[in-house]
Nucleic acid binder design. Structure first.
Length: 802
RNA sequence: GAACCCGUAGUCUAAUGGUAGAACACCUCGUUUACACCGAGGAUACCCAAGUUCGAUUCUUGGCGGGUUCACCA
């Protein structure tokens, strides 16, 4: 009879993990079969940025969380489409390459730079695959691997662009754009983060243009005096008595001497500063609103790198901050700087480099979002959100959108924008669908109107342009339309809450615009791991705990056990102690299995004609709980399911049932023994299966050691979920009553023994009430055996020691 | 400023309109045929206030505290 290995040492995960990693890969256990008759369950996997070789527990948890779901669905009989992916496209990769190799994009040509990025990505991806995903036992179908910079992904991205341009939802415009002067690129609203800082509010005197009034000066408070050359208007509140007579008059902008008109607008807060606002193109986003509303002049003073252009006069060439200093100095010299106040402000900044963003008018490509707010919210409602309340984040964001989505980026490493422009007739030429993927820099086009050579677009797409089509990339939209049709819309998008406004939003948008439907049926928002003091974990903060270290110390299954205790959408402070519980579980399961196998040596795999009562009770309880666990699993409630499994396995099965049948198995023969053996066999197999999505290694090892030859499945992970007959699942009141009473009275007896400081198998004479005795009549032998009662009498409950 | 989430034993977490179930830690006792990485048992908890209710930790409102997201000012 086989024994589990390492009996003396207890459970040693290392060897077992190694063994099955190899086995699963060789046997292609997780291979997707497109011809399967089973219902498909498809996952729109989050492709990680391939820009670091480690994974901290936060990422480890979230990736494992939905990996468990993949395993659950496989067990439920679904054909699971679970493709791994890498996001190796765009700014994060560029930044990584620039930092790691000390190269700047401005000093390298695009082709060269792209080549380096691609090579670096491949290296990091390899580390990820081997050291992270495979190590953690993740059950991807590796044949389905995709990357967002691959020609296929580029094709999807460009195709979606072409379709949307044709549809009129994507346009090129010259508009104020959110701009990062460090990265020298346009940004989307979603890429802007708050930056709190202290700044100075400067009170500056403006002269009045005509001398008709006795008052010759007005004082204006501004945080951005450097924008004086771009000043195009002055606003006051219509409710402000102080300036009533000033409306319509003109002021002379200090240092630059151009005239600007004073106008009124309700949005002006008369209590801020002096109650006068100067509008510049563009100091902030409200400037843009007023500029648009009142059709003011455009005076662009900034170059794309954040320096002043010729409009800045003597300040030309200076950076914004330097210009500000100089201008303030000069204002002070002229006696115009009346006072300066300290002010706390929050400015938008680039999420990658924290440089405060500027607003610069440039030619960019946009996808319409503002026209579709309501439609998108409707789409959001068609999707099932886990947890439900996370939908509010999506709705909030969608409702409050102020900008169309800027999709062009003045960067190198990304999907090229497949467009050319004719300088002489302003024609825009878009690539044909048959040509993509294409890089316009490497393909010459002539203008269809005038025949001249058109200028290629040198920009690339925002990375979300590709990521928002992850369902299409992952399911081979253009490559394999038949497959795509089969698995779309996808079943699940698992992701984290911080990118609801980007990834979830853009994906829903794209799906709505391109296909007029939702991209997936369910979305799960994974648990967000904090450090033990409740702070977000990151490499830069230095509080990250790495998955490698943990699995070295505790093993993958213990880590996965910890993952299974997390609730979707909630924060979870990391506590290393929690992994001890996982380790404990593994040891227990290991020992229980050893015990059972020892006692199944003479088992003939046949169900005896009649089961003992307590065995039947165990079987019912098993069936009932398994069924409950199934519905929890199907609702992605992994922690709920795990709790039930723990109770079923540890308390009911190991601590009670095993103790109850122990002596019967040792001493009896025939059906009495076989009855227990049958239930042991069923119970262990069931427990292994329902636990296999979580602790995938140990359950496989135990399955392979004993059950495989009987059950026949190559792996527990492609076996079938244990289904029970209806009468077992529904339980019978009578048997449950009796079995529960059995366990209650047993507990009472144990308590008496504890109170008397006796060991659990000390011999006793037991007295039970008449009702209890009648109830337990059919299970009397087992009861006497587990309590080690030499005699059971009728009367008032009493435990006598011999 | 707004929206959303959360506030349960020392720590972390679960369920629930009838005062709470685990885990880790703690205390007591126990170990001759799976397991001391164990077994039996014990102590310890629903942020505050008002309301709805026969009854609230659970529902409503307000407050306090923590978190996330969004908006913010010239």
């Amino acid at each position: 009879m086989e024994k589990l290995s390492n009996k003396k040492k207890g459970y040693d995960p290392k060897e077992i993990e190694e063994k099955y990693r190899k086995y699963w890969e060789e046997q292609k256990i997780y291979k997707f079969n497109p011809d399967s008759k089973k219902k498909i369950y498809s996952i729109d996997t989050p492709p990680p940025y391939a820009s670091a070789g480690h994974l901290h527990v936060g990422h480890g948890l979230s990736y494992t969380q939905f990996e468990i779901i993949a395993r659950i669905m496989r067990l439920m009989g679904r054909e699971v489409y679970f493709p791994p992916g890498f996001d190796d496209n765009g700014l994060p990769t560029e930044k990584y390459v620039e930092e790691k190799l000390g190269i700047s994009k401005s000093k390298t040509n695009r082709a060269e730079f792209r080549k380096i990025c691609l090579e670096e990505s491949k290296k990091v991806e390899k580390i990820y695959v081997e050291n992270v995903f495979k190590k953690l036992g993740h059950s991807y179908d590796w044949d389905l691997l995709y990357t967002t910079i691959s020609p296929e992904a580029q094709r999807v991205s460009q195709e979606s662009f072409i379709k949307l341009v044709k549809k009129g939802d994507c346009y090129r415009g010259e508009e104020p754009t959110i701009w990062c002067s460090f990265h020298e690129t346009a940004l989307a609203q979603a890429e802007v983060e708050d930056l709190e800082r202290t700044t100075k509010l400067n009170y500056i005197d403006f002269d009045v243009a005509s001398n008709s009034k006795e008052n010759k000066k007005l004082t204006i408070a501004t945080t951005r005096p450097e924008f004086l050359p771009a000043c195009v208007g002055i606003f006051v509140s219509p409710e402000d008595e102080r300036y009533k007579d000033w409306i319509g008059k003109e002021l002379i902008v200090p240092l630059f001497n151009h005239k600007v008109k004073i106008m009124e607008d309700k949005k002006v807060d008369k209590d801020f500063g002096t109650g006068i606002v100067m509008i510049c193109t563009f100091g902030d986003s409200t400037d843009i609103e007023w500029w648009k509303e009142y059709k003011l002049d455009l005076k662009s003073v900034l170059n794309l790198d954040g320096t002043f252009n010729s409009l800045g006069g003597k300040y030309e060439g200076l950076k914004v901050e330097e210009a500000k200093k100089e201008i303030l100095k000069d204002l002070d010299k002229e006696g115009r700087l009346k006072k300066q106040e300290s002010l706390n402000q929050t400015v938008g900044s680039c999420w990658r480099c924290s440089t405060p963003v500027e607003y610069i008018v440039t030619k960019q490509w946009f996808i319409k979002t503002l026209d579709y707010k309501e439609d998108l919210i409707k789409r959001g409602n068609e999707i099932k959100w886990y947890p439900e309340f996370m939908k509010a984040r999506f709705e909030n964001w969608t409702k409050n959108l102020k900008w169309n989505w800027t999709i062009s980026r003045q960067r190198y490493y990304g999907v090229p924008i497949p467009a050319w422009y004719c300088e002489s007739c302003n024609e825009i030429i878009i690539a044909k669908e048959s040509e993509i993927p294409i890089d316009p820099l490497e393909a010459e086009k002539n203008c269809p109107s005038c025949g001249k050579i058109a200028t290629p677009d040198s920009d690339v797409f925002d990375t979300w342009m590709t990521s928002s089509n992850s369902p299409e990339v992952a399911s081979r939209w253009l490559e394999n339309p038949e497959l795509y049709k089969k698995i779309s819309p996808m079943s699940l998008r698992p992701q984290s809450h911080d990118i609801i406004r980007t990834w979830a939003f853009y994906t829903i948008l794209k799906s709505h615009l391109l296909f007029n439907r939702i991209p997936w049926k369910d979305i799960t928002i994974n648990t967000f791991v904090l450090d033990s003091s409740g702070k977000g974990m990151s490499k830069s903060k230095g509080n990250a705990i790495w998955v490698d270290d943990l699995i070295d110390k505790y093993g993958v299954d213990a880590f996965r056990y910890w993952v299974s205790s997390a609730t979707l959408g909630k924060d979870l402070p990391f506590n290393e102690k929690e992994l001890i519980a996982g380790k404990r579980f593994l040891t227990k399961l290991w020992n229980v299995s050893n015990f059972i196998f020892m006692n199944l040596e003479d088992y003939n795999y046949k169900k005896p004609k009649k089961l003992e009562k307590i065995d039947e009770y165990m079987l019912q309880t098993l069936a009932y709980n398994t069924n409950k666990i199934k519905s929890l699993y199907l609702n992605y409630n992994i922690s709920g399911a795990r709790e039930l499994i723990d109770n079923l396995f540890w308390n009911i099965f190991a601590n009670d049932y095993l103790e109850i049948i122990k002596r019967r198995i040792y001493n009896e023969t025939g059906d009495k023994k076989a009855s227990a053996q049958y239930v042991l066999h069923q119970s262990l197999l069931t427990i292994l299966k329902i636990m296999s999505p979580i602790t995938c290694f140990i359950t496989e090892e135990i399955y392979q050691t004993y059950f495989k030859k009987i059950e026949g499945d190559k792996s527990i992970h492609i076996s079938k979920w244990p289904e029970f007959k209806k009468e077992l699942i529904e339980q019978t009141k009578e048997l449950q009553g009796k079995g529960n009473l059995f366990r209650e009275v047993l507990s009472k007896v144990r308590q008496e023994k504890t109170n008397a400081k006796k060991s659990m198998n000390s011999e006793i004479i037991l007295t039970l009430s008449k009702e209890d005795l009648e109830m337990l009549e059919e299970m009397k032998e087992d009861f006497a055996s587990v309590t080690n009662s030499k005699e059971i009498k009728e009367g008032k409950f009493k435990v006598e020691f011999i």
